[in-house]
Design a protein around this nucleic acid. Sequence first.
DNA 1: AGCACGCCGACT
DNA 2: GTCGGCGTGCTC
Length: 805
Amino acid sequence: MTARTIRVAEVVVDGTALFLDKRFSYAVPPGVDVAPGMRVVVPMRSSMRSGIVWALREASGATDLRPLARVVDRAPVLTSDQMRMAEWLCDRYAATLPEAVSAILPGAFRLRVRSVLVPAAGAEIPDDVRGLALFQHIAEAEPALSDIRAKSRHDERMVRAWMTAGFLREEIRVDEAVGEKRQAYLVGSAPADVLRREAEARRRRARRQSDCLEVLADVGEVAWDKRLYPPASVQPLVAAGLVRVEERRASHRWAAGEELERWPELTPYQARAVRDLAEMADQGHGVALLHGVTGSGKTEVYMHLIRRAIEDGGQALVLVPEIALTPQLVRRFERRFGGQVAVLHSGLSLGERREEWTRVLDGDASVVIGARSAVFAPMRALKLVVIDEEHEPSYKQEDAPHYDAREVAMWRAKQAGALVILGSATPSLSSMYRVEQGSAKLVSLPVRANQRPLPPIEIIDMREELRTGNRSIFSRRLAAELEATVSRDMQAILFLNRRGFAHAALCRACGHSMECPRCDIHLTVHRSAEGHVLVCHYCGHEEPLARRCPDCGEEALMPYGLGTEQVEEHLRRAWPSMRVLRMDLDTTRRKGSLQAIIERFQAGEADVLVGTQMIAKGLDFPRVRLVGVVAADAMLTLPDYRANERAFQLLTQVAGRAGRAETDGITLIQTYQPGHRAVEAAKQHDYRLFYERERESRAFFRYPPFCELAVFLASHSEERLARGAAARFERELGRSPSARSLVVLPAGPSGIRRIDNVYRYQVVMKYAAWQDVKEDVVRAYRLVKEKMNRLGGSAVLDVNAQRIG
DNA sequence: AGCACGCCGACT
DNA sequence: GTCGGCGTGCTC
Ligand SMILES: [Zn+2]
Ligand SMILES: [Zn+2]
């Protein structure tokens, strides 16, 4: 008798529950082809779930394993490098394996698995059963057993009886989130003003058609979301010749045969940087901090190193902040690298995302450009990782698994023997500290590529303006420069770090501030068709802005504190002929509208761009002469240990939008705190000054980079349960063995105690090395999380947290 | 997270 | 008796 062996698949099963943080073993049925990295369907208890094969092994004897129900893929969708990366994410960020997998694998590969009831084929089903309403319903709607149960327990019993009798059986249905099919686009086929006029004409009788036309007037084209614009609404627009439907593979693909751009000559500084970086690249893994002033031509340096990496038979990964990932940027890379470029970002349809991922997986792309999550791209010959605007907080994922793309990139590069280039005009404290510690090498680009000096920065003391009788939000100097700029046919950017019309609504009589009924935060004033409304930025609550104060009864409620909408309004009122565009979260919510604003401003369709921090993230507007910071104070008073760092970075980055190509520039910063050190350092263009001072205070108060932070956050609609969970977590840590290596700050309410009627309590931890404390922290976390989930609340742990509260 | 199982009070 | 509600424990 031969020893029977069977093949066993170890599977990571999809889901968020804690118990799924392991590999489940299933028998591979004989003759079934399966490899690690393929998606499968497996039985779990009494339901079917999707998962991914992690490993295969042989086992003999005990064959009490349940078999794989289905293998979905013919080729793996994850590489083994990516699986190692997932395991590392679990270790570093206290994530479960399925959480790590879902961060790495694009949503386009998600499976939806259902077991549905169907009449058994070929079974003798009595007519009295077949005639029952329940049976008919099952035959038509193919519901799941759980759907039946939800309606009636009696029906469930009946169905179970029919299953035993062989009248019904369960069938697995697997739906891909998206097929590899093409994506349909709606494209405006009339000029924007015609579309707008037609939209207005249909406003009353055909709301959907009107909306659709308006969007197309703004952005030209959109991926066709059939829930938003049902075919019945689109059809008449097509018939009227206003819209056409196009099916496409990808938004734009480099056409074979298009001529590549010539490589321009580098400035001496660029050439030196390329030489230094190339030398590092030759030595394998390393981390470089490319500190180049705004407009110093960092991208050109990146591209030279990418070219080298490709010539060496390698691949390069370029990470940029989501907002800077514009078609113009992609085009810029394609002009040098042609069809070797792949793009991964959220603006793509699911189908496009999947296609780009597959191109990378198949080795058809040598350069991958993407935002944060592109750090997981399936590359097998990684030689170079570029992280542009390295200081941007958006590289840290705010939800589970809370990874930091900069850290992931460095880990990955180390495994692959690749070079990492962190690029910024305002390096994060932690990166510069890395240089200080010798774990990164500094490479500098101290002058602009256009050989012009950095635009001068002037500070305007708004207290002085007030004293001398100017009550406008624009100082005399800013007003004069605005007029001068526009009259010379140049452009201006006005920056304010607050969206909405006004920061809050305040009672002039008693000082009462209007609060959100569902959150512990004041409401923001927004402009609306009927005047002003109060809006909560956290839960979306909206109410009209009344005059009467609910607290004292006086008619004295007034908007207080500037917002971007108000700046726009003051501009229009003071200079009616100026053409103004606004760019903030509210004007860019619609897909494509961000890009539309960027393009319109670049095309000179507006004189002034008013915006929040999103205008500071590496966008290139060559005709901008003037940058005005309307009120720096909004960012100087943030209650966070990083407030100074953030303020300095924002001010420097915003100032850097001025005078980038064709003109000299000037930056004016209006503030009530002209002596603030972030303002001063920005004015001097003095990164060193900023770094030394900030470093000193971080060291003194023991904040990163002199330690690492982790934040435990418990949420529950009952305050005592949220508070209790945080207190319990704190106690658990107090009696853990690693208590010595850990500073645990007292449990307390999070920065905003209540959001959407859910209370939030947190515990902040400081430690030198996660490795030394993780075991105990994770044990305490899982213990409390499990309890919290049972009670209908939730708990999260943010390791290496970038902000607290 | 689901889902089964078991125990309980409330109703046909 | 039987229905639905909810706490508890398990998932290859
Ligand atoms: Zn009042
Ligand atoms: Zn709210």
